[in-house]
Nucleic acid binder design. Structure first.
Lengths: 134, 134
DNA sequence: ATGTGTGCAAACGCTTTGCAATTTG
DNA sequence: CAAATTGCAAAGCGTTTGCACACAT
């Protein structure tokens, strides 16, 4: 487990390791309670506060992204490389798209903001749902 | 007030008119409680449930968009024309950007989806918040 | 010894719901 | 009259917080 020490610049408690283990490579964009449910099965000592604390810490250290895809709850993405999303309007599946798009705003559009990044959501219908609709 | 009859395909009660009046041309992307606060000052008979009911109905009839920009609460946009958003990461202000971006995905990226539309969020810091941070 | 992390439970804010009363077509 | 809408209050759910205890450096 110590292999993570370099990778994650936070103190690695058993709880945090359990959470990181669950997140590692997870492409489901889980919510905090998804994480709590999954992790507490294996490690029953886990508390909700610790999940939130850990996610907070990870977000501060940029080890996790907090997504606003779902207006009901935060969802988390362990893939911190900037990327975009392809979302199925039917089944809500989310696929990552790893490409940079150079999108420049005009001075007028920029409204004197300092722009840091952009995120694109592509909305469509996945191949599975296309079949069903027919 | 009857001028709205054609425009909004819903039964127009005084409460709904009050909400529509507040939303008409509103570019602040208000939350449900923003709407409740503003409208109930003028029409004290307004209840929270009615605000949510009305927003739900309007969303079904595509008269309002529900935004998931803010992970804490839903925000609503009376502008249903497709457009993009410039978001202040500090104060969560949202500015509309009315431009079409032609963003084509490669066949590989498209994952056999039928893509309908895209939405871009530009994240940055607005001029107000830039001042405060210094 | 000091700071950091944990667990519990209570509190909080936004949203939804059940239901009776009212209004509308 | 039947169906839709309203207001109220309670409940639901995700999230945050306060605090005492445990742990690590």
């Amino acid at each position: 487990m110590t292999y993570m020490k370099k990778k994650y610049p936070i103190r690695l408690t058993p709880q945090r390791l359990a959470i990181l283990e669950y997140l590692e490579g997870n492409k489901a964009h889980p919510s905090a309670s998804d994480i709590y449910k999954a992790v507490s099965e294996k490690y029953p000592m886990m508390s909700f506060a610790t999940v939130y604390n850990t996610l907070d810490t990870l977000r501060e250290k940029m080890q996790v992204l907090e997504l606003s895809i779902d207006s009901k709850k935060k969802r988390f993405d362990p893939n911190t490389k900037p990327h975009h999303h392809l979302i199925c309007m039917e089944c809500k599946a989310i696929t990552d798209i790893h490409r940079k798009f150079a999108l420049d705003l005009t001075d007028g559009e920029r409204c004197d903001y300092k722009i840091m990044r952009n995120h694109i959501d592509f909305y469509g219908v996945c191949s599975n749902c296309k079949k069903k609709t027919k």
